[in-house]
Design a protein around this nucleic acid. Structure first.
Lengths: 347, 347
DNA sequence: TCAGTGTTTTGGATCGATCCAAAGACTGCT
DNA sequence: AGCAGTCTTTGGATCGATCCAAAACACTGA
């Protein structure tokens, strides 16, 4: 059936079905106005002709593309992998398609990508901003009239517009409390440069909890490379001090897993000689040896929430900036509590 | 400068710059026909008005969207993370934008996604087909006149159209030879269902090499879940036989890392009691303890090659189906050769 | 000054859908 | 039959760019 060669147009489809273009258009939009029998006739014709809807043409008139821009700063990070899966799932039901691009944490690249997305006339933007993104960007995007939702990170001290994230602060408080419970006193926080909102949130939650327990905060900022390798290298560095920390809270699971590797190399027993906590509770956290304690941020749910919020913005322009902050929870495993045993989680 | 509210059109831009629409159009296409001074005037006007090119409108006339569809089967797999980064990079230079979608290895979902992409009139498709994709799909896509490049996997026995992949077969031969060299005889291949082309290629390379050495092949097929968790579970199963294999070649690094975890749990020393080889040489392979030997498939380069080939197809329709197969190499590390020492690779 | 040549610029038609106001078809009721 | 009230269908006009053939312009040399 599907004709090779040029595309079938709505006009031809109308001719074939013996109705007007307008009627066909209504059918394609699933309008309730058109009679059932007519709709069926048109659908049948569409099938036999191999008609493909041309969203670009529709966009020109209706100013709505059924696409969403998604900008992340590191596509290879498993957190974003899971988040994107959540986004995908939610959009799927609404027949939206995501344009997914990765800024590689470069502001210049992010700028170019956003321009590209704007040329494509995406209906909305989900943005995990690159570090050092100028605070004005969000206002600029708002000026453009492009709905934008910041995810997990935000530029400036507090989200200026819509925001979806996780309650990292509470998570950190819980993690610190747990470590203190386990008898730790020298608890360090290993994070990025300290300038991104994600870093600041971690630092705030950590600092509060430490101060509440009258312990001296020990924050180790570094580069914005937040990979396994960075976790490894930085832990090697940290642990060679004369009186190193006895517990590390790492910026994310990747770095925490790197920290575990470092401890191994140093001949230290993770969880016994030094406790390690990650953030994200990625799939790998539960599997390792020792299993990694982690603050669960539920990336899949965050992706769903963000996409859902975007769709809501598009349906009704609504009013105020929404701020969705999902709960976190602490998964205690062997890397902080050797007695937690080998409850291997094989689903 | 950027006006809030409605979009500036090319028409307004032309009026503001005191030239005709056609001239502006030529400027935007960077045509050499227009005089330098005119071009500058138009560019300046574009800046002051905050003009944004409307690619959708352009598409309607010129039948070319500057977008590429990219369909992978598991976005969370680090191989695809790196591959997508390579694609992104190459497209960036050509001002193309990728539509990235994930089929989750479901044929039905893949079908829907491809329809969505077709509605968006993507100029070409990069496809890592879901398992059990009907062989006819590639022909159908060709009938549509949509250039398509299969990546890493292909439907049917042999690629029907353009294909970019890695020489897995040679890699497997090398891996088997290396293991035999290390004195192994009971070498098992742990792979997916055995039905995807990726599986078949692994099996073929493995079988040849084993037969060449007069050893009995031992192929363990299973589900098409190719994750760390699957590697763990399946290795636990495999190793509880009375005379288990002494070496495992796993479908990818994720599964191999899972296998290492399993050996740990069983109290076996990876690399000594049982050797493990992965495929992909992902970032994590080099970092673990023991470090994982792996067949390097260079996902970044594959992404670049695939995107490059797609762009080439678009420039000149060219002729024959191209088949690009990149070399693989074997990275020997402690998981197969304990004497390889701790040459920790910290770049 | 003018024909000849090469360089720039231009208006009208066009791509494939949607929007809108108004026409047509049908029903039930007087 | 005539009319009001629904339910369906319809033909322009339109969105914002590109394409193309032809017009305008700028030189050059006779």
């Amino acid at each position: 059936m599907p004709q090779s060669g040029k595309h079938v147009t709505l006009r031809e489809l109308a001719a074939h079905a013996g109705v007007s273009r307008s009627t066909v258009s209504l059918v394609l939009q699933e309008s309730p106005l058109v009679a059932r029998r007519t709709r069926e006739r048109v659908m049948a014709a569409a099938r036999t002709l191999g008609y493909v809807y041309n969203r670009g043409a529709a966009t020109l008139r209706s100013a709505h593309t059924a696409t969403l821009g998604v900008v992340v700063h590191d596509i290879a990070n498993p957190f974003f992998g899971a988040m994107v899966a959540g986004i995908d799932e939610t959009l799927q039901n609404a027949d939206y398609v995501p344009f997914l691009v990765s800024s590689g944490n470069s502001v210049a690249r992010q700028q170019r990508l956003i321009t590209r997305l704007r040329e494509q006339r995406v209906d909305a933007l989900l943005l995990c901003p690159a570090e050092a993104t100028p605070a004005a960007l969000i206002d600029t995007i708002a000026d453009w009239g492009l709905p934008c939702i910041e995810v997990m990170r935000h530029v400036g001290d507090t989200p200026r517009g819509h925001y979806v994230g996780a309650d990292i602060r509470a998570g950190l408080a819980r993690a610190v409390a747990h470590l203190i419970d386990q008898g730790h006193q020298r608890i360090a926080l290993v994070t990025g440069t300290g300038h991104s909102s994600a870093d600041r949130e971690r630092m705030a939650g950590y600092r509060e909890a430490m101060q509440a327990a009258s312990l001296a905060p020990d924050i180790r900022t570094g580069s914005n490379d937040l990979t396994r390798r960075a976790g490894l290298v930085r832990t090697l560095e940290i642990m060679k001090a004369p009186t190193p920390p006895t517990a590390l809270i790492c910026h994310n699971d990747l770095m925490a897993l790197g920290a575990l590797l470092a401890l191994n190399r140093l001949g230290l027993m993770p969880g016994i000689d030094c406790a390690v906590v990650g953030i994200d509770d990625s799939d790998e956290a539960a599997l390792g040896e020792p299993a990694l304690s982690s603050i669960a941020t539920h990336p899949h749910a965050i992706g769903q929430a963000a996409a859902g919020l975007a769709l809501a913005c598009l349906r009704g322009p609504g009013g105020d900036a929404q701020r969705i902050v999902l709960d976190t929870s602490l998964q205690v495993r062997a890397s902080t509590d050797p007695t937690s045993g080998h409850l291997w989680e094989l689903s």
